[in-house]
Design a protein around this nucleic acid. Structure first.
Lengths: 339, 339
DNA sequence: TTGTAAGCGTTATCAC
DNA sequence: GTGATAACGCTTACAA
């Protein structure tokens, strides 16, 4: 004795409806959609006509449930407000789209605790893999990853413990731009840092190493603020830095936002850049090439990181080895007028 | 006779496992997770302990399939490379997160055809509703929306046909900034436009209306390029504009990127801004307050648009009426040194 | 307040 | 090459 039918999702057209309309069985419809070569030409045509005629849209939930594959990838980023991660997302998108995968975006707000919660929450969707920003994560985060045997690729930095990663050496980049300032004759080079996430701290390490090597490191020239960075903050930090150390002759800012704010304030104060004070940023965002004076900075291959990371993840998901488990995409110094 | 068991998704723990561990039935576990107040205190505790002990993560696919609700919202934006939409996403995220909804992000690349394909593709996830950027869409796009009876909220602009929308009048904003330039004594005010999407064209309409009202509209002062905008393009367009019309005494750029590029080029060329040439942008992105000279522009409430649109959509999904079917969040003129 | 049975729409398995 | 049948993990409807 049949019961009251339930509410249907979507427009209500199911694979069975298509099958009936085409005069075949449901499984044949499934094959036409997923492994067309296994179905004979005439049946394939009939089925496709029925699909179009009925406006049939397959249900991902049903497919995921039945096949234990969601064709979905979770992307964990620390912020939606930072162009750097957006361009990475854009790169990821091109690859996943082409492969028929869709991405779920999780924003951790630079918080390891939230990142863990996000992972747990998104696990409900049974993603086939995860793209992760950065290498350091909460202990339960890593544990849950391995518990669920989730293929993962780490982005933006280079791991040395066998985890699959795509990025560049944040430390080496920090050292390289610092050496550039040294090569310009600067000796009292300061560091402005905000947010203080993992990558900023590595750039700081690189800066310190370069100055140590040159014998002119000075701990009193480091200004660090855990708040999110902004141009306003760059301006404020410049004021604080010059008040404390008027002898400072160069500044490496941990990102372009800080640098542009510092640059603008220097202009206001009539400080000669780069003669009296050289300024360098990090990331090479668009405004770096258009501020006054133009900003010396480090160009980072964030879009490519997204592309390569997504490709590597798809291979892991398919049980293959990625081309490289540790892809170093490098960085480029963009030498402009501010140094 | 039982068959070979299938592969399990996730870590393999199901609601039945939890039920067994807690000595209750599966439906009770479901209730503890979804309507806790319907379950007695002691049972609730036992179940929660079992959930934690087993590390159980519910399957969204199974839930969606059984309940015909995905607790998922599709967000359609024209670009992932534009800060404006990111901030909108961030606003949406706060509201959806709090309500236990997750968002699927579809990037149409400013292409109505792709937008339609995206909608079709994401329909596989059976989203409970859609947040849409802009008012103009392909005909099949609107058709599919109504076929599937999908609750929808349109963002960024104001509709006059009863569609639920959250935004501000792009046209009025374009007119307002133009009137400001008029009030500064400018009379040969040019327009620089890129991308030429719906919103840019409405700003252009507003610009034209304001100049018509003042009796000084001049069709020779409009420069339009369908390519995506960039600071480089702003610089190039400034060159072209001044070459064609050296008498031009102000420029309204359709967004801040163009304006900042034009501003930077003006500085290079030694053109006095705003005396000889005033420049205004649109959106008030962060660099607008930090370029030289600072940029006059229109501040748009994009984050709030996201927040309000998401709230309205959740109400529609629940079958209630939103607070307003046409929420005008306004805009603000940011008058700075470039005018 | 709790449980039973059926069914959501698809795919894996096995048979023809 | 095609089809019948049984899962997949959960929630609805209904009963106790």
């Amino acid at each position: 004795m049949p019961r009251k039918p339930r509410v249907r999702s979507g427009s209500g057209v199911t694979m069975h409806d298509v099958a009936k309309a085409a005069g075949v069985s449901a499984i044949t419809v499934s094959r036409v959609l997923n492994q067309p070569q296994q179905v004979s030409e005439p049946l394939r045509e009939k089925v496709m006509q029925a699909v179009d005629a009925l406006g049939y849209v397959p249900s991902r939930s049903a497919s995921t449930l039945a096949s234990a594959r969601s064709r979905t990838v979770l992307v964990l980023i620390p912020s939606l407000a930072n162009t750097v991660f957006l361009e990475t997302l854009a790169g990821i998108e091109t690859v996943l789209d082409a492969a028929g995968y869709q991405m779920l975006i999780g924003n951790s707000h630079y918080d390891a605790g939230q990142e863990f919660q996000l992972l747990r929450a998104y696990l409900q969707h049974r993603p086939d893999g995860v793209l992760i920003t950065g290498l350091s994560h909460a202990e339960p985060f890593e544990r849950i990853l391995s518990q669920h045997a989730l293929p993962a690729v780490y982005m933006m930095d280079l791991a040395d413990d066998g985890r699959c990663c795509v990025g560049f050496s944040q430390e080496e980049a920090g050292a390289a731009i610092t050496r550039h300032l040294l090569s310009r004759g600067k000796r009292r080079i300061g560091f402005l840092g905000a947010q203080l996430d993992e990558r900023v701290m590595k750039r700081l390490d690189g800066y310190r190493a370069a100055l140590d090597a040159a014998g002119c490191r000075d701990a009193g020239l480091e200004w660090l603020d855990p708040q999110p960075s902004s141009m306003q903050m760059g301006a404020d930090m410049l004021d604080a830095a010059l008040a404390a150390r008027p002898d400072c002759d160069a500044l490496f800012c941990c990102n372009d936002d800080l640098a542009i704010g510092a640059l603008a304030r220097s202009q206001e104060l009539g400080i000669a850049v780069p003669e009296r004070l050289a300024i360098a940023g990090f990331n090479d965002l668009q405004p770096a090439a258009w501020c006054t004076p133009t900003l010396t900075t480090v160009a980072t291959p964030r879009r490519d990181i997204g592309v390569h990371a997504a490709r590597a993840l798809l291979r892991l998901i398919d049980g293959e080895e990625p081309e490289s488990r540790r892809a170093d995409l490098g960085f480029r110094l963009m030498l402009r007028r501010s140094s």
